[in-house]
Design a protein around this nucleic acid. Sequence first.
DNA 1: CTACTCTGTGGGAACGGTTCCAGTATTCGT
DNA 2: ACGAATACTGGAACCGTTCCCACAGAGTAG
Lengths: 354, 354
Amino acid sequence: MSGIADVARLAGVSKSTASRALTGSGYVSESTRSRVVEAADSLHYVASTSAVSLATGRTQNIGVVMPYVTRWFFAEVLEGIQDSLLAEDLDLTLYDARPGTAGRQRIFEQFLARKRFDGLIIVGLEPGDEELERLVALNRPMVSVVGAGAETTVIEIDDNDAARRATEHLISLGHRDIAFVGGGGDAHWAQVDRRRLGGYRESMTDAGLETSARHVPSEVSMPGGYAAAVDLLGDVRSRPTAVVASCDEVAVGTIIAARRLGIRVPTDLSVVGIDDHEYAEMFGLTTLEQSPREQGAAAVELLLQQIDDPSRAPQYVRLHARLIMRTSTAPPLGAGGAALLDSTEIAADGPATP
Amino acid sequence: MSGIADVARLAGVSKSTASRALTGSGYVSESTRSRVVEAADSLHYVASTSAVSLATGRTQNIGVVMPYVTRWFFAEVLEGIQDSLLAEDLDLTLYDARPGTAGRQRIFEQFLARKRFDGLIIVGLEPGDEELERLVALNRPMVSVVGAGAETTVIEIDDNDAARRATEHLISLGHRDIAFVGGGGDAHWAQVDRRRLGGYRESMTDAGLETSARHVPSEVSMPGGYAAAVDLLGDVRSRPTAVVASCDEVAVGTIIAARRLGIRVPTDLSVVGIDDHEYAEMFGLTTLEQSPREQGAAAVELLLQQIDDPSRAPQYVRLHARLIMRTSTAPPLGAGGAALLDSTEIAADGPATP
DNA sequence: CTACTCTGTGGGAACGGTTCCAGTATTCGT
DNA sequence: ACGAATACTGGAACCGTTCCCACAGAGTAG
């Protein structure tokens, strides 16, 4: 492999001039610049990243830490991040820190400490105390998608509000008996689910329906939602007329369970989710859209700002979830009017307001 | 940040001795070693990766290139890879090369050329000619999960055989009218789908059923399978009694479509998939299991061997897909016996044979 | 014409490690 | 007792860049 010295020799200049010509810093005459570039091309010269990093202190690399890559939300955020990084000529090193694994421990104890990155994006991590401590000890620019407890820049949707609006949508359709499915199944989404559950409860209380509020725990997955819904819907007498699911995967599981039980959606049961998952359309799922891809892109943008100017104060970006009405929600059987109230909501709903 | 010089000074030894003590190479007395380690600990010393890379020529990093991270198979492989790498103290940089994107082009033209890795794992990439050329030009240890056309070590299941066995399972149950759903929808899985379709066709031909063989193109996703199945199953008269799906996502889409159309599974329609997707159990899907996580782990193992000894000849590892019988397959309505032939297959089927 | 800025260039010291080599002390075989 | 192998250590070169500094020539203001 040829180094910059070879390029310099071939172009008949010094190493320093070659370096300036290729990086575009400092004075270089146009003629020598083109000679150098030509020489570099003909030698297929590519600068050694480790040498560059050593000399500049910049790695040209961003670290991404997330607890799962197999879940829709995380994979989408990851692709959003990757797209933006590619455009900025930045590498991405991935740390898949699944809760409770030995790998996660090693990531926090060893891998991150190597600081092989100019900045860090952490996604829905919900770090423990010690983990949090290690993160701040890194003293590197950092942004989190979905709050992490550290005083970093964070990007997230307003989960409480999203759940409120999901619930209010059902209430305005005339539903009174509305259950919340999701959360409490496993540790991870704890924070997010708690916020959404909170929004649901508040909304029920505001409508004077707190007595009929019900929370059915479920794992955050389609099979989890399915299992929980089979339980919930099994008994005809205690069956609610509508369900707010903590996310679309759970919502879809609920719809599938309902169909299996011969319960018509939306005639007998309305279901609303949060996410706008890729499956939402296929099931006609009414949902509150959060765009994880955009969240990833925003994370990169804010991180780069912070790398550029580390003194910059942390920002808090709260994205607005848009209600997308499809065919999984309708007034309850026997209810007449109220429904029309909602039909304009999509139009009334503006673009995301950071 | 303190460097090795600081550690050496604190321990009262030279840089070289400190280095030997910390890397564990060469002679160091036990007493000085512990002094050095202690000094390093108290200074929270962490070696600069760029300096180490520059000096040793090793990056301690593995590159992973895949066309999607949002699909089940790829995300699972990725987690398998990550797990193994964490155990080996190796970093992972991800290149998400979605077909047809500008990002993919940049990855091949610029990112990979930087050779920021000691080895490369490419997953289901199906590179174009020029892309392939660039890959081999890297001249780095490389293994592919699912063949890539290059003469590298490859790990994959026998797709043809998997589809054959899926088909034969249905035939042995007494089915004669069997359709194949999947493939031909988008460019990417082309190779894999073609092999699976081939296995299905061969199997039908072997059974003298080529005249009833039918291929219904579909995108490789649940909504894709759903849409294709709605088409296929819509007309009662031309409806097959069984479907081989090119993968579980398509199979699940098919089952959902069938249910919606009031077609009972497996009574009216048998469905078999390939994957053993996380949703398979929930739908009682009979399928041929391929364990992507294991494939990822195997890829790492073989790659490390090759990094260790670059002269090693490329290997070809063909994994065996195990038939998992659930409740989505049964003899066709009106057929009597034959079914029992299959019931022992799970037991008869040994562990994967590389 | 001088002083001073601006442009262009090269030499060489970093950056932070590893590793070769030389040198010394100790052990061991004969 | 002597040479050789072995254990341990430090000095310095080296990995491939960037970038500071010195320097030269050209243009320009006074």
